[in-house]
Design a protein around this nucleic acid. Structure first.
Length: 152
RNA sequence: GCUACCAACCGGGUCAUCGCUCGCGCCGCAAGGCGGGGGAGGAAAGUCCGGACAGCGCAGGGCAAUGCACCGGUUAAGAGCCGGGGGGCGCGGAAGCGUUCACAGAGAGUGCCACAGAAAAUAACUGCCGAAUUAUCGUUGUGGCAGCCGGGUUCGCCUGGGAGCCUACGGUAAGGUAAAGUUGAAAACGUGGGGUAAGAGCCCACGGCCCCGUCAAGUAAUUGCCGGGGCGGGUAAACCUUGCAUGCUGUAAUGCCAUGUAGGUUCCGGUUUCCCGGUCGGACAGCUUCGUGCUGAACGGUCGGGAAGGUUAGCUGCCCGCUAGCAACGUCCGGGACGGGUAGGCAGCCAGAUCUCUGCAGUAAUGCAGGGGCCAGAUAAAUGAUGACCGCCCGCCGCGCAAGCGGCGGGAACAGGAUCCGGCUUACAGGUUGGUAGUAAUU
């Protein structure tokens, strides 16, 4: 796996792009809130069949991150409720992606070691435009929490 | 130089590190790697107009609905733009200049017009008049006639009174009138005179406005002169009328590939009549070589076709009407609902009413010709993040007579493609250039 070699990339394969997977994540995944983010996540084994919370065996899940996909996929959003202008939403998503990109390697290696994959969605729920340093700090905390979740 | 306004343009730069997306070249079985390129706006926004493009619909007609509304030009088109005309407003002595107007019709009809006011379209009320006509009132009323009553008488008549009638006068009502009536955004063309019972464009003079016509100018809107007719408000962004135009839905359109369209549950509707032809059977009739042979034939079965009716679907609002399907007592046909399934990929999807420069035509919008350029194509949605320096602006401090220099701190707008173009509207820190006006200084 070449994942550990290139550290700070966030290409198309590492982002959540499938509408189907995203819907499954919101429907069956777990979530927690760590201000100013709401985090949806859904673990599964590297083979991509059974997620740990295990609601049921879902046959449509075979297209989830499997052998050909990286074990970690993430999506990002900012609600248009608080940010009416597209420029502001873009800014928040870019800052979030940047912070995630620079700090995700630990989680990635942990997943690789435990042979599991994870779908992740980060929604910014704050009401004001955040500073870069705040986002950086909070994303770090969220990633640590996810590592603990994966270990348990 | 400064200030104001208008127009056009710009909308921070460089470097480093780590990243994103789409082509190209090379390497690699592949995953991918390396190299070198492209990568948001003047409004990308609002989605208000107009197109291109696409699908659905489309024999045709009618109704409805919607939009537009001075003229000419421009354009693929427009509720855009350019030029012109007209009205309003502002400045001005005027010429003119600027600005603004959804600028057809209120001489077809219906409706509405808050508050105030007599009244918002009927002419009511106050008021004025009461001439004509009609009615009516009037205590000594102006004149006349006069039934009747009293007195006198030469019996001819004289004289006094007098109901009533006519007339005159005064009043009232019907009636006439729209001059005056504290309002209001708006009040029945304005001023003056004549006229009248009182009045009135009722008449006249001058002026204003509207309509029609001749002539002249102009492509036209329109303008001018003359002539004729007229002058009872506003509102059509109330209904409406007139003229013109218009199918509907939008790239989540749409096409292709892959997958699926299976099995199931349930509801509703349907099985018609007639005609023609083929074929089979055939009551019966005729012919007969008497062979149940030939010919005809009501009727019946079956197959095919047609007509009417029925029914289902379509006709992107409705109707006429049109088109297509169905006709089968079978667990059949048609339609609907539930349920089930897919929501992946490719095309559309970026070379175009394209950008830019030059020339020509035109007052201009714009067009034509030539040269050069290639300028985002994402799809949970890329074009970024961080740092440093430079440039710009603001504040404070220090130095300096001052211009300014240095240090520290802070700020930098509106705003992000999603099919693509042409417009419109709205938002916008700061800056550059040009023009106009004012003003200071210098020559």
């Amino acid at each position: 796996m070449p994942v550990s070699n290139k550290k700070f990339t966030l290409g198309a394969t590492e982002r959540l792009k499938s509408r189907k997977t995203i819907e499954r994540l919101f429907r069956d995944g777990r979530h927690f809130t760590l201000f100013p983010f709401k985090v949806y996540y859904l673990f599964s084994s590297a083979a991509g069949i059974v997620p740990p919370p295990g609601p049921a065996t879902l046959p449509g899940l075979s297209s989830l991150p499997g052998l050909s996909s990286p074990p970690l996929q993430a999506g990002f959003a900012a609600g248009s409720r608080h940010f009416k202008k597209a420029v502001d939403r873009n800014r928040i998503k870019r800052l979030t992606k940047e912070a995630y990109r620079l700090q995700k390697s630990d989680l990635q290696q942990h997943l690789h070691a435990t042979n599991r994959s994870l779908a992740l969605f980060l929604i910014y729920t704050g009401k004001d435009l955040p500073a870069h340093s705040l986002i950086n700090e909070k994303i770090g905390v969220i990633l640590q929490k996810l590592i603990r979740e994966a270990g348990s």
